[in-house]
Nucleic acid binder design. Structure first.
Length: 496
DNA sequence: CGATTTTGACCCGCGC
DNA sequence: GCGCGGGTCAAAATCG
């Protein structure tokens, strides 16, 4: 499956082609504000409407032109009939005025068009950021895993027996989130430990799909459906993992290309900002949900948590985010089936930095779901923009298919955070004005500066760079409800 | 008028 | 058993 990267790098090309169109329209007296060269052409041709190559220097000061035209018009009123030459001048002035008004309208519409393009580029930029972080994170974890494997082989006798004997409560919780294959084994083996969240979901799903089930006895016992058909779907599996994206954004919601409908809002404990609940509305029955909440410590940081997998084709603009989050969730879930659970030392405190990953990953056993956190909030380190090679990155990037993402997590992580060097390579959303090529260059700089990055990542990046063109033609609307604004006045906390 | 948001109620798991 | 907190529902309100 080839998923093309939705990044609208050809936005520049689209614009170029539109410039070519504009050039054709220039003969009609149109103005292009965005190219000095063309602008000059526009100036000349704009004055050419009467077939006279007068070439007066207007310098595109629209306001000035309007004043000039109006002045001429006023003069004509005062000096009406004085000279036939004045009539000609008046006509010229009126003509000019009409032209300029038309110009103004055209420029307005063009402004809107460009604004739309800018938004699109922003969206794609965000999506690529996330995609890149996910990819880099996985690669770094692969390295960490390899290192730990080596260490494990050194201490294999002492490590292995501890892995499953020291399972504390946190680890037991982690076991709850085992993927189907493993949790099924547990169920079949008669373990009394049941996944309560799963039961809850089953009940909810049952209620959604068969309303008559509401009529069950009040003390209905959650049935342990042995077949668990719903939970065996990938969607059910994916819903156990969360991908959380931290981004600095003034906007109420980061743009991910999907359509969302808000279905709830609650005050969460320990955070004055409300948490909003959204579900994907791009297809009926899509299980994907997301939560949006501002960070309590820094209100500029928007935390978006995704849960589930889309059951419908995604527009290109949504593909990057979806595949990135899906890959991260996949990585998270599939990791537990690998043989590297030894990484999950059960004596982890609530938030421990893995020794082998330095500041790359943290583990939070307190999270109810295994959660991958992609942190895009760190400010850009300007030193990492020293080397720029924009041409290298002006080719579009293909989306790596989810299945091609390396499944390298060694254990179930709750709360991964990116290493500082990666974070610093990724500009915050507040820096959207930064050119996309600079961003990629910075990311490349970070890669080259980090000795831990392997040839695998380099190959991945290379393959990305060498991808084919995406076809951006979608303009999916994004939910723009303002969590903060809508709640600051109206929301009554549901907290009892 | 359909889609979306708001918001109080409800359900459920969990801890005490 | 009770209360708390997270998550969801669904009727009413609002929006485009």
């Amino acid at each position: 499956m080839d998923i093309m990267f939705p990044l609208n790098l050809n936005g520049r090309e689209e614009y170029t082609s539109s410039l070519q169109d504009d050039e054709k329209r220039m003969s009609l007296g149109e103005v292009d504000f965005f190219s000095d060269k063309k602008r000059h052409i526009a100036v000349v041709k704009m004055e050419d409407s009467n077939g006279e190559a007068t070439q007066r220097e207007l310098d595109l000061n629209t306001g000035l032109q309007l004043v000039t035209a109006n002045t001429g018009s006023d003069q004509s009123m005062v000096e009406d009939g004085i000279s036939p030459d004045h009539h000609v001048e008046d006509k010229l002035a009126m003509n000019e005025l009409a032209q300029l008004q038309f110009e103004l309208q055209r420029m307005n519409s063009e402004n809107q068009k460009i604004r739309g393009m800018l938004t699109q580029v922003n969206n794609n930029y965000n999506a690529l950021q996330i995609q890149f972080v996910a990819l880099v994170q996985q690669e770094k974890l692969a390295i960490a895993e390899r290192k730990s494997e080596e260490k494990k082989q050194e201490n294999v006798e002492s490590m292995v027996p501890r892995q499953f004997m020291d399972l504390g409560p946190a680890a037991v919780n982690e076991m709850d989130e085992l993927p189907n294959s493993l949790s099924e084994e547990i169920t079949l083996s008669g373990s009394p430990h049941t996944n309560m969240m799963e039961l809850s979901r089953n009940k909810r799903i049952g209620r959604e799909e068969s309303p008559e089930s509401d009529g069950l006895a009040p003390n209905k016992v959650p049935k342990l459906n042995p077949s668990k058909p719903l939970d065996q779907t990938p969607e059910a599996t994916m819903r156990k993992a969360r991908v959380s994206v931290r981004a600095r954004s003034e906007a109420p919601m980061i743009s991910d290309g999907c359509q969302w409908r808000k279905y709830g809002q609650k005050m969460a404990k320990g955070n004055p900002c409300p948490r909003a609940y959204y579900r994907c509305t791009m297809a009926v029955g899509c299980p994907v949900r997301k939560q949006v909440q501002r960070c309590a410590e820094d209100r500029e940081i928007l935390i978006t948590s995704y849960e589930g997998t889309h059951n419908h084709p995604l527009p290109p603009a949504a593909m990057a985010m979806a595949s990135a989050t899906s890959a991260a969730a996949n990585t998270l879930l599939s990791g537990s089936t690998t043989s590297t659970d030894g990484l999950m030392n059960t004596t982890f405190p609530a938030r421990t930095i893995l020794p082998f990953t330095s500041n790359m990953a943290t583990i939070s056993a307190s999270a109810p779901f295994p959660t991958v956190t992609l942190d895009l909030t760190q400010p850009t380190n300007p030193l990492q923009f020293q080397r720029t090679s924009p041409v290298q990155f002006q080719v579009p990037l293909p989306v790596l298919p989810t299945t091609s993402m390396p499944q390298v997590f060694g254990s179930k992580f709750s709360g991964l955070q990116m290493s500082q060097d990666i974070q610093s390579a990724l500009p915050s959303q507040a820096e959207h004005h930064q050119s996309f090529t600079d961003t990629l260059s910075a990311a490349t700089a970070a890669i080259t500066a980090d000795p831990n990055f392997t040839a695998a990542l380099a190959a991945a990046i290379t393959s990305i760079i060498g991808g084919s063109h995406p076809n951006i033609n979608d303009n999916t609307t994004n939910n723009t409800s303002n969590v903060e604004a809508s709640t600051s006045n109206k929301t009554k906390s549901s907290i009892h």
